[in-house]
């Protein structure tokens, strides 16, 4: 029980604490706030503004075109194709990545000799840069001298031209991306697997469930939150695919690997259509924004603000 006088003292001290906290708090956060305003909020707003104009970056005047850039997007064959390619890339790479990441996690979720080394190996492609990975895979995919086609030759198969074959170029990029990212998601799956209580498996085994049955009725449902999270993260990253395309195919052959960010880059920094490219940027932002909201929804349960 506090007497009135100590209560007042406590209150005063608390009040004083809050005031100094406010000063320190804003002091500590000032670089972050400046950064958010300058490099996040401003670009966001300026991008929206620019998307209503036609501007070649050099000219002193920007020509207002209203929603013209946006309506043009819907009739721009190249843009629509880039959206289709991005969707194809996203669907294939996310599904394959989930499949491989899950397989790796299930196989490594126990202790046996060498498990540490295996984990190190499977995670290692995450560490190297996308550019380095793309260059290495470029050489593996070389139609005449690359390992992949030489390997296929052993079985009498004439391999395709991979990055130079219109039908295989996007697949080349997908295969390389799955190799590069599966280890990252395998780590998330591993953490989720370790969160499944042992008693669930014991119950399943008491009920006489076999391996497959245990997987479909215990493991897979328990992994659902992780799978959703991985799916959404994968979609967000896939929509931003650029470096692989830049190094491996430059959007070709015949535009078959032209993706949204590559198209934006071309419009902005090769053709200097700043307004039009800003409209593409805003559309890309909206797509990613929706998926990020979904991601926060999934993560929310485990977050405490």
């Amino acid at each position: 029980m506090s007497t009135p006088s100590t209560l007042g003292l406590k209150k005063r001290r608390k009040h004083h604490q809050e005031r100094t906290d406010t000063i320190w708090g804003y002091f500590y956060l000032s670089p972050v706030l400046a950064w958010v305003a300058l490099f996040m909020l401003f670009p966001m707003l300026y991008m929206i503004y620019l998307s209503f104009f036609e501007w070649n970056f050099i000219s002193p005047v920007k020509k207002f075109v209203g929603l013209g850039n946006y309506t043009q997007l819907f009739t721009d064959q190249e843009f629509l194709e880039s959206v289709v390619h991005t969707l194809q890339f996203t669907a294939a790479s996310v599904l394959l990545t989930i499949l491989f990441a899950l397989g790796i996690a299930l196989a490594l979720n126990r202790s046996f000799r060498g498990v540490g080394i295996l984990r190190t190996i499977f995670y290692s492609p995450v560490v190297v840069s996308m550019i380095a990975a793309a260059l290495v895979w470029n050489s593996l995919f070389d139609p005449n001298f690359g390992t992949i086609n030489k390997f296929l030759q052993l079985f009498g198969i004439q391999g395709p031209g991979w990055v130079s074959d219109p039908d295989w170029a996007l697949w080349s990029i997908i295969i390389m991306t799955v190799w590069k990212t599966m280890g990252y998601y395998a780590v998330i799956y591993l953490a989720a697997l370790q969160g499944i209580p042992e008693s669930y498996y014991e119950a399943a085994s008491l009920d006489g469930a076999g391996r497959w049955r245990t997987f479909t009725s215990v493991t897979w449902p328990m992994l659902m939150p992780a799978t959703l999270l991985i799916g959404v993260m994968g979609v967000i990253n896939s929509f931003q695919v650029f470096a692989q395309v830049y190094v491996m195919t430059q959007g070709g052959p015949v535009g078959r690997t032209n993706v949204i960010v590559y198209y934006l880059y071309e419009r902005a920094f090769q053709f200097f259509q700043m307004g039009y490219a800003s409209a593409i940027g805003f559309v890309l932002f909206l797509i990613i924004f929706i998926f990020t909201l979904l991601q926060f929804k999934f993560v929310d349960r485990k977050l405490d603000f």
């Binding site: 966001m44 300026y46 620019l50 929509f239 800003s278 940027g281 909201l293």
Partner: peptide
């Protein structure tokens, strides 16, 4: 939530 790929143009201008 703001991918820097999307906002690269205004960042460049800034």
């Amino acid at each position: 939530m703001i991918p820097h790929q999307a906002t690269i143009i205004p960042s460049y201008i800034l």
